[in-house]
Nucleic acid binder design. Structure first.
Lengths: 220, 220, 220, 220
DNA sequence: CCTTAATCGAGACGGTACGTCCAGTCTTGAC
DNA sequence: GTCAAGACTGGACGTACCGTCTCGATTAAGG
């Protein structure tokens, strides 16, 4: 979370663990009430019953604090086995949309991504704390589909990784775009249509003689 | 663009037209140099050789100014007929990615979207100035594919609209997610894979006896 | 007072004159209530009903603001003709002591002088705004005494200036030291004794064949 | 110096004596380099190679620390017998001025006096540590002058004390005012003139039939 | 020798003020 | 009525110190 993980000084008063959690809770509460742009470090400190310096001792700026505060919410996403790839995708789409409907994520996610276009360390932090951790869902869903025989299992590793990455960007991107940019509801009908499109596309590629999704340099 | 459209007074000194373009140019320049969060209204005014009052007489705040400044860039996107749906999609994906690589769009787009989660008028402005105008690309591409016979032409209008919207969210979302969130390059290989997935999905739906993408309440 | 005196810009909104007086009044009030070390720029601004930036636009720091705020109080000192040099000195000593008893001067004077030991421009400001303006009292008193015949009129100008300066340092220094350092009351008895000492010393010098106070290089 | 004098616990680790001197040395060094207002407790602690807690265990605040740090410098003042009251005064004036020229005293003395106008215990500490100890110089000089016959010996004790106090305030005040407020050099010429004025004033009082400096209620 | 207790360093803590910056508004005189 | 200029209120910023606190680690003196 904060840089304390790496072997820290043995002397001096240790940092308060309650402060950490109080600050992150306060940050989420402030996001809900005020949104990203009206959230201030001073306000978070006051809500957490903590001095501003205590915030700055742990986080360099508002963006990093908010990433940490929101990251934990994304870990709640689960991928229960619903019996088919289509059902699994549909479920995670609706789950993800529900998460993005929460005011703390809705307002924060795009803001920190926007900030990260000019802030390399922040981009790394976002990838490590949020993005990369959700790729597990794609991996898990794809493996299950292979076990069920819905998808072929014989692809080479490079293609597998590339398709996993593609599916992640398509699903995450489509949901985010739908709910935040297009600003229309991610309802069951839309989720069904997206799942159908993806499953259809993946199956079509698998059935065609030449795998249309294979990595260019990969042997088939 | 600015609120001048609504019937305004006929008397008094008319607004300077040079000022308008100078301000928007200055805004883009400032976005390139400073990024969204460090761009200030005072700085834009100074670059444009204009008083701050002149900015505020035309735009209510920084977000609206930036939306107008970048909106025009999105109109450059074109959809030349490359002979197949797959090629068309691949081309627009790369075009869109190239647009998002430009520093002024990269830093501004997500920021104003983030801001718009708490600002209804801003959300409307973004949709009107940017989002809705790009949906024409989906419409055009789909119609061409139907003319070529790549896609069936007999669907009901509600389904057509729903699928157009889905494709828009998938393409736009996937590209944005890939380039800004995942932060990996949108290269030809990735674009090919995305096109293949979409064309495969659309074809699969068309070929299957029951159209998997049809609007729930629509007759087939 | 502030640097506005030197030819200023003709354009733009002019500075508020009410703000100036409100700020100086607020500064004096804050000095009375809080003393120098607990006076803050933010508090002064709040009392004056003015933004902090308005303070900083006019004064570079707390010290300069306080010098301007108290300088005006020192102009109240008067030297009415009481008929004899001794009475005149006694009177001005008591007046000056009364001024130093006021909480705003008591707490501020030494503080800005202390600060000025490391701040050349501040030292100049203090001399110009406070110190030099009070030397007029010595000049006036000495001239009256010469007219009355209490002091000889035939000295050379360099000696006259040197003695004036000496008298100023002795009177001002003695009163300040008595009231702020020694922290004992400047009462009538003390003032009489100081006047007696000075008048005695000046007369003795005048009566002695060789003027003990004459400037070394001056012809007699 | 520090509050250790009052009967303290006999057990536990005793306070480090080196720490005391290291802190006071560090304080003087910091005064020279930074001046009063930029001197910080943390900096002094760091210079002294000591924890901040160690400072606060000994001194309640910055002012008291600085008083102790500079007080010792004032004890260096001596009054060698130069054969005449005038020479003695002249000498001590120059000595005192030299002391005030040292950066650590120049910046600290006025500052703590300013602070003491709102801090009774500090005022007491200054009087005890600095002011009262220097009054011995006046006492000594006056006694020598009486022994030499320069001043009459028959005054009543109250008058003697009052005149001693007056002389102290005049000399100390004049030198401080000259060097810190008027900001002009205390050179030999000025010192001679001040001595002449005082000796003249004291002699005139002694010679006049009625002692102009006598305490009001005292019998002659 | 072994407790006992106050000291030591380090550094985190809650506060408070700093001086700067920017947003968005207002006031001036010129056009 | 618009324009450039620039002062205005208001409020957040991130930093710096203050004086306090909590640690674990030293010390002596007293048992």
């Amino acid at each position: 979370m904060c840089s304390r993980t790496t072997a820290r000084s043995r002397t001096g008063r240790p940092r308060s663990a309650e402060a950490d959690t109080a600050i992150l809770d306060a940050t989420r509460a402030a996001l809900v009430e005020l949104g990203w742009s009206k959230l201030t470090m001073g306000d978070v400190a006051a809500r957490a019953g903590v001095a501003k310096t205590t915030l700055y001792r742990r986080w360099a700026n508002k963006s990093e604090l908010v990433v940490d505060a929101v990251a934990v919410l994304f870990d709640e996403l689960q991928l229960p086995d619903l019996g088919s790839l289509r059902a699994d995708i549909e479920h995670v789409v609706l789950e993800f949309a529900a998460l993005l409907e929460r005011p703390e994520t809705k307002t924060a996610l795009m803001a920190v991504v926007a900030e990260s276009t000019r802030d390399e360390p922040l981009r790394d932090r976002i990838r490590a704390s949020i993005v990369d951790r959700q790729k597990r869902l794609v991996l898990e869903g794809r493996q299950r589909a292979q076990e069920r025989g819905e998808l072929p299992a014989d692809r080479d590793p490079a293609t597998v990784a590339a398709v996993d990455a593609l599916i992640f960007d398509v699903v995450a991107g489509a949901v985010v775009n739908r709910s935040l940019v297009t600003a229309e509801p991610v309802d069951r009908a839309w989720a069904e249509r997206l799942s159908a499109l993806l499953v259809g596309g993946l199956s079509a590629a698998a059935e065609s003689g030449t795998d249309a999704l294979r990595e260019p340099g990969a042997a088939r």
